[in-house]
Every structure is written in structure tokens, then in C-alpha cells.
Amino acid sequence: MTTTGTTLVIGATGTTGSRTAAQLAAAGHRVKAASRRATPVPGAEPVAFDWYDPATHAAALDEADRVYLIPPVGDADPAAIMLPFLRQARTAGVHRAVLLSSSAIPEGSPTVGIVHQALPDQFQQWAVLRPSWFMQNFTGTHAHAVSIREEGALWTAAGGGRVGFVDVEDIAAVAVHALTDAHAPNTDLVLTGPETLSYDDIATTITQVTGRPVRHHRLPYEQMRDRLAAQLPLEFASMLAGMDRAIAEGAENRTTDTVQRLTGRPAGTFRALLERESE
């Protein structure tokens, strides 16, 4: 691995960005931690960045030669602002870009898939991380975690569908590899945990490890969409509910060896995450 260069981490206070910035800094890499309020991140240089404020982009890119890209949250058309930024980044001297996408969003599909498709034309060194659903959705500030704490319940339209839930620490470890290894992956990387679990399994495991009873409520697509639309724009709520429906149909029932192949260690299990966070 190389220790030269500067990595701009966009969304450096977020779920994957904070861990990626921390792991990069701990390994001795220079990091510019970008967030709207230039929030301090240990070992990194804070810098203000807002996708919707182009005036913040040049300063964030200054001296950066690689960038970790987290799309704007909740934007149904992120390519509209991300593609001009990528062109600016290339002109500013960025030669490697790693994009966070999703296992549910293939290259060229609406939303981040359009950015995925464009990335190889912008950079000779690149990678697209396509993680499965985050294990930390059940322990952090995500709506699932809130409903678990407040209601002892999970609400999805996923039925009995199975998912290769992935630990965010493993996503960050792959991101660090993709950003700093001597050879860029130059491909998309589907990231999963070591096993597939249904939401019923998730509820059972939380109950067993924490002693807090949790139940999975299976909703029809329409009810899940409406439940999400109470807190999110309808278009985004419809997309998320549609992802649940795809899970019910088997779209996420897979595991990959990507984490172990790139980091040299096995992907973490959901039970291990719960035990770690309950210590």
C-alpha cells in the first residue's frame, strides 16, 4: 500500500465515511474530512463541503489526488450534481475515485447507477462499492434501529427474503484498500457479510443477544411505502419500499468473498456486531 497522496472523504461524518476517514488516518494517510460543517474528525483535516453548494468544491479538492464519494442522501437524481463535480475533480488532479453505491443498484440504473456508469470514463483508477444492507441499520440512528428501541419491532415489505447484511467496518476496510492499494480495483465490488439472514432472523438474533424482544412485522408494499412516505419524499419512499419487495423476491439472497479477498480477513457476522456493541 502507498502512504503518499491525500484522500478527500466526502460525507466524513456519516456511516461509512467516518469509518473510512478514521481507518485511513490510523494507517498514516493524509485525509481531508469533508462535511457540511467541517466537523473535526480525529487524525484528519476538516473541510466544508456541500453537494448543493459548488462554492465549497474547489477548496475541498485542493491537493487531493483521490476521493471517496458518498452521494447526496435522498436525492433521486444524484448524477445531476455529481457528474459536474467528477469532471472538476479530474481537472483538479484527482486520479482515483471510489464511489459508494448499493448491491441493489446495478450500473446504469437510475440514481447512483448513472454515476457508476460514468466513473470509468472520468478516471483511469476507480472502484464502485456495492454493499448489501448495513448491519448498523439495526443499531444506529436508522429508522429500523429507532423502531427496535422504541417499539420492539421491525417493519418491512421484505417478507421472508434473505439479505447478506454487511458490517460497515468491513465496507470501510474495503474502501481503504480501494483508495490506497498500489493497483485500483477498476471494477464494481459487491460486499456482503458471510451469511444471508431474513428480517425474522435479525429480530431473533437481537432478542437472543440483547434480551430485548423484537418482532418483524411483514407489510405489503403499499403499506410500507406509505409508512416511509410519512418521513421521506414519496419518490424516495417508493424506491425504498420497492427494494424491500425485491428482497422478498430473492434479489439480495447472496454472499460474496470480496471482504476477505481484499482485506485478508473474514467478513463479520451480525451476532458478532451485536456482541461487540453490547460490551
Rank of each mutant, 00 (worst) to 15 (best):
L228E: 03
E150C: 02
M239Q: 13
L191T: 10
V214M: 05
D201I: 10
P233H: 06
V190N: 05
G193C: 04
D200W: 03
L228W: 02
A237C: 12
L232P: 04
S238Y: 00
A153C: 14
A203K: 02
N186L: 01
H142S: 15
A175E: 11
A143D: 10
P213A: 07
A229R: 14
A230H: 11
G140L: 02
P220C: 08
H183K: 13
E151V: 00
E222D: 15
R149L: 08
A143P: 00
F138V: 01
V209M: 08
A143N: 05
H183V: 13
D188W: 12
T196A: 07
G161V: 10
R149H: 04
M224N: 15
A237Q: 10
Q231L: 12
T207P: 03
E195A: 15
L179K: 11
M243Y: 13
P213M: 08
G164P: 08
R212Q: 14
A229Q: 09
Q223F: 04
R245L: 15
P233M: 06
Y221T: 06
R149I: 01
D244N: 15
Q136I: 00
V168Q: 12
A153T: 14
M224P: 02
A173N: 07
D244E: 08
V190Y: 13
L219D: 10
L219W: 07
G242Y: 05
V176S: 11
L219A: 10
G242T: 07
T180W: 08
T187I: 00
L232Q: 13
H177K: 12
Q231E: 09
